[in-house]
């Protein structure tokens, strides 16, 4: 089966100093897949997106989208893909409805023609359809932008950080919509800095400083986490972390919500008890130590700290 997106050895650098934004990246996305590029701001996600959407020319490597070359066949690609750039880029002084119908015409279609695709989202937007896009809240803006990118039923949909600055409730809504779109057979490539969103993708690529660290299903990535992980609590977070830092035999520890996460070598035994004793010895009370299941964020932190070390 032909791949929906196929990138080989893509690089992009900028400026006189040739600052490397994308460093020999290869990617393969299957048709109908919901694929996530997970990495913080500045990791090179946007440059990859722009090369795949024919907006930038790669300095090295090649890429094909639905079989079309991103350099030679840019016209064909532009006819077939949907793209939602990172920052809000709809017309702020046009209403919701006007934005939508404008983009529909630009893509040779009408709102009615593909209404079934956007109807779930559009229902939420409809009460505000006479409102200027600039006056929408962050979540609503992103929903509108998604509608606009979807209106022509693209074969491949590129979403660059669609949920940045969006509140958790709207983010959840947004991902539910993406899941439904997948059912229509649209290939979706989405970039996000939110690690918790990774689990909603079929496969993800962890990316940092222009390089891909790992590509797999979220479950496989967390399963491959090499260390043993504990969640620890004992009074205030800062006190807990201070105490943990004095303990030998742990690889890393950091706050993660209510608990501190402590990673220890997989081979180490009786660490659970050792940590507990240590914290009690340091004068902490109400100490809780229990095994934790690693998340994508834990994986990411592992990569970042290993790189620094």
């Amino acid at each position: 089966m032909e791949l929906a997106i196929e990138a080989t050895d893509l690089s992009k650098w900028y400026g006189k100093e040739k600052t490397l934004a994308v460093d020999h990246v290869s990617l393969a996305v299957k048709p109908g897949e919901l694929f996530g590029l997970i990495g913080p701001d500045g990791a090179g996600k946007t440059s990859i997106f722009r090369m795949l959407t024919t907006l930038l020319l790669p300095n090295t490597g090649t890429a094909r989208v639905n079989g079309f070359d991103v350099v030679k066949d840019y016209v064909e690609i532009r006819d077939r893909v949907g793209y939602m750039p990172g920052r809000f880029s709809l017309y702020q002084d046009l209403t919701v409805e006007e934005n939508l119908s404008f983009f529909a015409t630009v893509f040779n279609t009408t709102i009615e023609e593909n209404h079934h695709l956007i109807k779930d989202i559009y229902v939420q937007l409809e009460p505000f359809k006479k409102r200027y896009a600039g006056k929408l809240s962050g979540g609503m803006k992103q929903k509108l932008a998604l509608c606009c990118a979807l209106i022509h039923r693209p074969e491949v949909l590129f979403l660059d950080e669609p949920t940045t600055g969006v509140d958790p409730v709207s983010r959840k809504d947004f991902w539910e919509m993406l899941a439904r779109l997948k059912e229509h057979g649209i290939t979706i490539l989405v970039a996000t800095p939110y690690m918790d969103e990774a689990t909603r993708c079929d496969r993800i690529a962890l990316i940092q400083e222009g390089r891909i660290l790992q590509v797999d299903t979220p479950a496989a990535i967390t399963a491959a986490y090499p260390d043993r992980l504990f969640q620890v609590k004992g009074g205030s977070m800062s006190a807990t972390l201070r105490a943990l830092n004095k303990l030998d035999g742990i690889i890393r520890c950091y706050g993660s919500g209510e608990f501190a996460h402590v990673a220890v070598p997989a081979t180490a035994t009786d660490m659970e008890q050792r940590i507990k004793d240590h914290l009690l010895a340091q004068g902490l009370t109400d100490v809780v130590v229990r095994p934790a299941i690693p998340t994508i964020e834990d994986v990411f932190i592992k990569f970042t700290q290993e790189k620094k070390a």
Binding site: R50, V75, R78, Y83, P85, R87, S89, L90, F103, N108
Partner: peptide
């Protein structure tokens, strides 16, 4: 400047 050009470019326009 507003970034809408990006969307227009990635369109059949």
């Amino acid at each position: 400047e507003t970034g809408t050009m990006e969307v227009l470019l990635v369109s059949p326009m």
